[in-house]
């Protein structure tokens, strides 16, 4: 048993030294950023191509939006898997919530958590943030409610069926926007070239399909993570 651990440790040290050698061979960042055509194209032409100020969002929802669709599918599959694994008949409340003090505190911070989440989702194309990050903040709110008020209350506020519907319709919304490109004779997930309004850079309604795609992903991630948490903590009757 001990010998096994030592053997593994030696192997990992050998692996790390090899990897360190490989890392040392990588071109330095300055060198790569200034010569890489792709990076220069995104940094210099990003605003022209997408109308978005946040270049990470521009890459995520315009240049590589197809990847994002695949990523959303992975979340969808994970949520489906978790829900299926815990598919059991009626819910048995696994917690009755915390003290009155915690409940009143959540009452006062809850709306602000929601506001922060929606802000991060809706301003994803202008400032740091986006659908994924904002969606996680929104899911945090449901987790807070289930801990502080108990799972039963959370279930009454946000029915699991409602969350499933929300997640599926957000995925559909993404697809509808994506097919908008094809309808106008452009490509799947085309943005500005498909006639989505460019708007004034830096304003809320700008960057064409980026903002609606962000909103769709935000709803989808928020509902999906809330469903995952709900499925994992609920306890079926013994």
């Amino acid at each position: 048993m001990k010998l096994h651990r030592i053997g593994v440790a030696i192997l990992i040290v050998i692996l790390s030294v090899t990897l360190a050698g490989a890392l040392a061979e990588l071109p330095s960042v300055e060198q790569r950023t200034s010569t890489s055509q792709l990076t220069r194209r995104v940094i210099d032409g990003g605003l022209q191509d997408t109308g978005a100020l946040n270049l990470v969002s521009a890459v995520l929802f315009d240049y590589r939006a197809f990847d994002t669709l695949g990523e959303a599918t992975v979340i969808f599959a994970a949520v489906a898997g978790v829900v299926m694994l815990f598919y059991q008949a009626p819910l048995h409340p696994s917690s009755i919530g915390l003290s009155m003090l915690a409940k009143r505190s959540l009452d006062s911070i809850g709306p602000f958590v929601f506001l922060a989440g929606m802000y991060v989702v809706l301003y994803g194309h202008i400032s740091p943030g986006g659908g994924f990050q904002g969606g996680v903040i929104l899911a945090t709110l449901t987790i807070l409610i289930s801990i502080v008020y108990g799972l039963e209350t959370e279930r009454r506020l946000l029915d699991p069926t409602f969350k499933t519907t929300l997640e599926s319709s957000a995925a559909l919304l993404f697809m509808v926007i994506a097919f908008g490109g094809i309808l106008t004779g452009e490509y799947f997930l085309s943005n500005l070239s498909a006639g989505f309004p460019r708007g004034e850079a830096g304003s809320l309604l700008s960057a064409g399909s980026l903002a609606p795609l962000n909103a769709a992903i935000g709803l989808k991630v928020g509902a999906g993570l809330a469903l995952i948490f709900y499925s994992m903590v609920k306890r079926e009757p013994e």
């Binding site: 890489s36 792709l38 995104v42 995520l60 990847d67 994002t68």
Partner: peptide, 16 residues
């Protein structure tokens, strides 16, 4: 500015 492409990929990797 930092290269935005690996940052977008990191976001993908975190979610996965």
């Amino acid at each position: 500015m930092a290269d935005p492409i690996p940052h977008a990929l990191t976001l993908t990797a975190i979610v996965i």
